[in-house]
């Protein structure tokens, strides 16, 4: 009885989740006016949409920089925040606890408020229009530090002590013992960071003032900026822009769940 209700609920949720995605995929194969008329069946305009898209927009450039920024952010974020999370837990003191609480306030800062000062800072560094300026503010988030810190709680301290007696340096312990065992946490952090970096919207538009460096969300707004919008081509671009983040999740979803589990044990 209950399991029937469960399947019904799951089916509803799954259909509601996937349907807009289906619409997105189908629309990529339809002409502009068909998309506007909400045509639900696949059409024949996929190739044409692709040709228009490649002809009108620097798709390759945007893909390259989106990937560079998302991968760069992810790698650096994992490196920096895992070290910090480990430090908070393994070298736990009251002072560090308080400091952690203070850093957590950073989650609550609205980005729109810090944008102007940030821009001025990057201007002084000569980093306007550099992908590094997109990556830097996204590397160290209090949330990821907290995730790694929580995950480190389940990490047995005896192993660390044993390693210290064996004469390993603290950094070596971190790299050789902690990192390999915490792989799922890294996967979870990677999914979260990659998705956020890939879809980052407001900041790249502001700091990347030259079109030599562009990201996919920027390209999507470019397509909608003119007097006439080709909705078929737009939907294809939307699809292309959505796929990588989905694929990253699909590839890492097993470890993702495990990693989050590790963090709340």
């Amino acid at each position: 009885m209950q399991s029937v209700a469960g399947y019904v609920f799951l089916t509803l949720a799954a259909v509601a989740s996937v349907f807009p995605l289906y619409f997105m995929v189908v629309s990529a194969t339809n002409s502009s006016n068909e998309v506007l008329a909400s045509k639900l069946l696949p059409g024949t305009h996929l190739l044409e949409n692709f040709r228009t898209l490649v002809g009108a927009q620097p798709l390759g450039v945007a893909l390259w920089y989106s990937a560079l920024i998302a991968v760069g952010t992810t790698i650096l974020a994992l490196a920096v925040t895992s070290v910090a999370g480990y430090g908070f837990e393994v070298f736990h003191t009251k002072a560090k606890d308080r400091f952690m609480g203070f850093l957590l306030l950073g989650i609550m800062i609205p980005f729109a408020a810090t944008m102007i000062p940030l821009f001025r800072m990057f201007g002084d560094l000569g980093l306007v229009n550099s992908w590094i300026a997109v990556v830097l503010p996204a590397i160290s988030t209090p949330f990821l530090v907290m995730l790694f810190r929580q995950a480190s709680r389940s990490f047995p301290h005896e192993i660390i002590e044993a390693a210290r007696i064996d004469g390993l340096k603290e950094l070596q312990i971190f790299l050789r013992i902690y990192v390999p065992t915490m792989r799922p946490t890294f996967a979870a952090a990677a999914v979260i960071t990659f998705m956020a970096a890939w879809n980052n919207f407001l900041w790249p538009k502001v700091i990347l003032v030259n079109n030599d460096v562009q990201t996919l969300p920027m390209l999507l707004t470019n397509i909608q900026a003119g007097y006439v919008t080709d909705y078929g081509m737009l939907m294809l671009a939307v699809l292309i822009a959505s796929l990588p983040a989905m694929l990253v999740f699909l590839a890492l979803q097993k470890s993702f769940a495990q990693g989050i589990t590790g963090a709340i044990k």
Partner: peptide, 22 residues
């Protein structure tokens, strides 16, 4: 089930606003 229900959160703002508006 898990994949289907999670996938929307991988979709970017511009994409999903457009789909919903339509």
């Amino acid at each position: 089930w898990r994949t289907a229900i999670f996938l929307p959160s991988a979709v970017g703002l511009v994409s999903y606003a457009l789909v919903f508006r339509t």
